[in-house]
Design a protein around this nucleic acid. Structure first.
Length: 821
RNA sequence: GGGCCUGUGGCGAAAUUGGUAGACGCACUAGAUUUAGGAUCUAGCGCCUUCGGUGUGAGAGUUCGAGUCUCUCCGGGCCCACCA
């Protein structure tokens, strides 16, 4: 028997226990059904679930349940992105063990996720900080290493003093650390990189394959990869025979306007290029640039600085001798680290030339040109010998070709994307499986000896070096090649390494012989629907795409892109502003579960906004959803004795009221199905639930007119339609109605197009496009009949009288527009 | 500076893709029930003065007809940004 009133806590506890026992959502590796992989971005186990998680996982769960009901073999897994700084900070701040801290959090959050009613196959759970997982992260690193895609080099890298570690380019935001927001400086260090730049072009081109991704994410990736085509031009140095300076430019057409050349402070040949007289000043400038943080460099954006080196280049086109300067507006790691300066046609060069009184030559003319102002448009060439008169684009090609023929230049495609720096001087990550031998140098750890276990005998409080350095047992080892005493690499890998392949592991999560079985990974992947936050648009999604392509080339899998469809969900706000601990406007899922139940939380978080938009959490909104569920529940409670699971009625022998009701049910099926399939518009799906519920209340108004088989059809259809969202309530009701199987195992209801049709339609009558009348007419009348009906409608007559009908537009079953003069 | 998105009642929003603008809900108002409150039910609810107009950031255009398409402008948000 159903209780009279809705008590979610009892119901949810009951089914929590049942599902824990029966594990009804296991994905089947051997099923004949078509597969569907629904994936949420896995969480960092920070301690407690927040509403962003609730929104993300509810959306994915409803998708998974919907697809299951449509007959798919669904894989809906969950895991933990569990390496990272917060665990280590907990260790530093209150002496917690990072592993214990992390696993405790996972335990707590797992329970919260289960209480949310997720249809997850928990037997495939992955936890990146456990040796069973990071063994394979290390193994994959070694495969990349063998393929030449992982390499070590000394380079100026981004250094966060606060986190005491280096950062990838993608992790520096406005010159600040992505995690702690403190200033980032440059440090010259020997670090591990992954050659993501080998895939620049493919990563860019294959964005076209991703039809199921939003343009916003694709453009962000496109901009980040930053392809540009230009030319390399080589300049000879007047004072030195053995040095030449290549520059990268997208405006080879302006080469006749070069009046000086700039190299970056870190430019490799800079000392050779500096004369004795200028040496001191140049050194000082370079020291200064080195000390400056990214922020300071950015803040000097408008006032460019530099120092002349004392040497000169010779422009191969003009023979003009121009001074070489060092200036920090030239970037060492883009292009060649040197720039040809054309002050008249580049704003930066213009500002610099103006400040230091360097000459300017106009070589482009066109509309809008003003004497004494930089002109950056692509106009027509002037003062450029045989190239004068050409337009800029043409000249660009001709000039580059000329340089190529004469051996001082070539075409060049350049990308903004840099190689991915993956070393971290931190403890809580996967150790890099490399050994340094005094005889053999850098040597890979034997694959049989993986994982390289994280040591536990470390001092977390050390400053300026990785805690792993303090382990008395970790560092010393023997060389895998020659057996001599050797030392281990004490850095760990960027946690984005762990998250770049976790979705592959779900295909074969418990395999302890291989990273994943090739057949299984090819069967389940690519992910059919990936759902997560927009903040990963570049970092995680780009790295994962790179990993997939690299592993394909290594021969571990056979597809090109990991995520066919991507949904980036909006943020969860509270009363209009972003939820944050500092503002104190967070909402605790536990409290919502306790007060309203998880079904209410699920319903509400899907209800007010479409998934991609920001969602505003309000107390009144939760209250409203709770009332709605209670209202639905009361309906079943009231009619539970009358509901027939095997309802049966003759469609041709029903009252008009029954017909109308049945039609409304079919329309609800149609719309709910359509709205889920059409970009997961759950907000309108929930409106349909409410409409159908209203229809049922309306239908039951007169007790003596109820056909209980028809009512059963309506109630059971609503129950199934609502079941992906209100998972506990629908299961409880269905079971109390005497059903033997789970409502979640039922197939999705089918709608009948004929039954969803109305016998009459509202005809809109317009005169000159303005609505004058609405008529109830029967479905399927001819255009002529409709036209006549419209003309004779009483309200239209006065507008037509005495005027000439110029034209009549008829839209069948919908509208007649009479155009008069 | 470049790119992407966005603008509809007091609020969240919907509109079958060019054909009844505001579905559904929140808030609000009135009534019923109740000792009272809550809950529940019933009705109302864009704006303007009733008839009737008018209305989707502003202005123009295309069209029989524009929230939807085109152009110009204004506002809001996000991402990238000394990339030569």
């Amino acid at each position: 028997m159903l209780e009279k009133e809705y008590y979610p806590q009892q119901i949810e506890k009951k089914w929590f226990d049942v599902w824990e026992e029966t594990k009804p959502y296991k994905a089947d590796d051997n099923s004949d059904k078509p597969k569907y992989f629904a994936l949420s971005m896995f969480p960092y186990p920070s301690g407690k679930l927040h509403m962003g998680h609730v929104r993300n996982y509810t959306i994915t769960d409803v998708v998974a349940r919907f697809k299951r009901a449509q007959g798919y073999n669904v894989l809906h897994p969950m895991g933990w992105d569990s390496f990272g700084l917060p665990a280590e900070n907990a260790a530093i701040q209150h002496g917690a063990n990072p592993k214990t801290w992390t696993l405790d959090n996972i335990k707590y959050m797992t329970k919260q996720l289960k209480m949310l009613g997720l249809s997850v196959d928990w037997d495939r759970e992955v936890t990146t900080c456990l040796p069973e997982y990071y063994k394979w992260t290390q193994w994959l690193f070694l495969q990349l290493y063998k393929k030449g895609l992982a390499y070590k080099k000394t380079a100026p890298v981004n250094w966060c003093e606060h986190c005491a570690t280096v950062l990838a380019n993608e992790q520096v935001i406005d010159g600040k650390c992505w995690r702690c927001n403190s200033e980032v400086t440059k440090k010259n260090l020997s670090q591990w990189f992954l050659k993501i730049t080998d895939y620049s072009e493919e990563l860019l081109q294959d964005l076209n394959l991703l039809k199921g991704w939003g343009d916003n994410v694709k453009t962000m990736q496109e901009n980040w990869i930053g392809k540009s085509s230009g030319a390399i031009l080589k300049f000879k140095v007047k004072e030195l025979d053995d040095v030449e300076i290549p520059v990268y430019t997208t405006r080879a057409d302006t080469v006749y306007g070069v009046t000086y050349l700039v190299v970056a402070p870190e430019y490799k040949d800079i000392e050779k290029l500096t004369t004795k007289e200028n040496f001191e000043a140049v050194q000082k400038y370079r020291e200064n640039a080195k000390k400056m943080s990214e922020i300071e460099r950015l803040s000097t954006e408008r006032t460019k600085t530099g120092v002349p080196l004392g040497t000169h280049i010779i422009n191969p086109f003009t023979g003009r001798v121009c001074p070489i300067w060092v200036a920090d507006y030239a970037l060492v790691d883009y292009g060649t680290g040197a720039v040809m300066a054309v002050p008249y046609h580049d704003e930066r060069d213009f500002a610099f030339a103006k400040k230091y009184n360097l000459p300017m030559i106009q070589v482009i003319d066109g509309v809008g040109f003003k004497e004494g102002e930089p002109y950056i448009e692509k106009g027509t060439l002037v003062n450029s010998d045989q190239f004068s008169g050409l337009n800029a684009n043409e000249a660009r090609n001709k000039i580059t070709e000329y340089a190529k023929e004469n051996g001082f230049g070539d075409f060049k495609t350049q990308y903004r994307l840099r190689d991915w720096l993956i070393s971290r001087q931190r403890y809580w990550g996967a150790p890099i499986p490399i050994v340094y031998c005094p005889h053999c140098g850098e040597v890979a750890v034997d694959e049989q000896n993986l994982p390289v276990m994280l040591p536990t005998d470390v001092d977390f409080t050390v400053k300026g070096k990785s805690p792993i350095e303090t382990s008395p047992t970790f560092k010393e080892t023997i060389c895998p090649k020659c057996g001599a005493k050797a030392t281990r690499d004490t850095d760990t890998m960027d946690t984005f390494m762990c998250s770049s392949w976790y979705y592959l592991r779900y295909a074969d999560a418990r395999n302890d012989k291989e990273c994943f079985n090739r057949e299984l990974v090819n069967k389940w992947l690519p992910v059919d629907q990936y759902i997560g936050g927009i903040e990963h648009a570049i970092l995680h999604l780009l790295y994962s795409r790179f990993f997939t392509k690299a592993l394909r080339d290594i021969g571990l899998l056979d597809f090109d892109e990991p995520f066919s469809n991507l949904l980036t969900q909006g943020m969860v706000l509270k009363d209009g502003s972003k939820m944050s601990k500092s503002k104190g406007n967070t909402v605790d899922p536990d409290e919502i579960y306790a007060n309203y139940g998880a079904d209410t939380a699920r319903l509400f978080i899907l209800s007010d906004s479409p998934p991609a938009r920001d969602f505003d959490w309000t107390d009144a909104g939760v209250e409203g959803c709770y009332k709605f569920i209670s209202r639905v529940y009361r309906l079943y409670s009231k009619y539970q004795d009358k509901i027939n699971l095997n309802y049966n009625f003759d469609i041709n022998n029903l009252s008009k009221k029954d017909d109308n009701f049945i039609r409304e049910v079919h329309i609800a099926i149609k719309k709910v199905t359509h709205d889920i399939e059409n970009e997961f518009q759950f907000n309108t799906v929930i409106s349909r639930y409410r409409e159908l519920t209203n229809s049922i209340y309306e239908y039951t108004k007169c007790e003596n007119e109820i056909n209980y088989d028809v009512l059963s059809f309506g109630l059971l259809t609503l129950l199934k339609l609502i079941s992906p969202v209100c998972v506990f309530m629908s299961e409880e009701i269905y079971s109390q109605l005497g059903a033997k199987e789970s409502i979640h195992a039922l197939l999705w209801p089918k709608f009948d197009e004929n039954l969803a049709k109305t016998s009459s339609v509202t005809l809109i009558v317009q005169v000159n496009g303005k609505i004058k009348d609405k008529l109830e007419v029967s479905q399927g009348l001819s255009n002529e009949e409709l036209e006549n009906l419209a003309k004779s409608a009483p309200k239209t007559a006065e507008f037509i009288e005495g005027k000439t009908i110029v034209k009549v537009i008829v839209v069948p079953n919908k509208l007649v527009n009479i155009v008069v003069k």
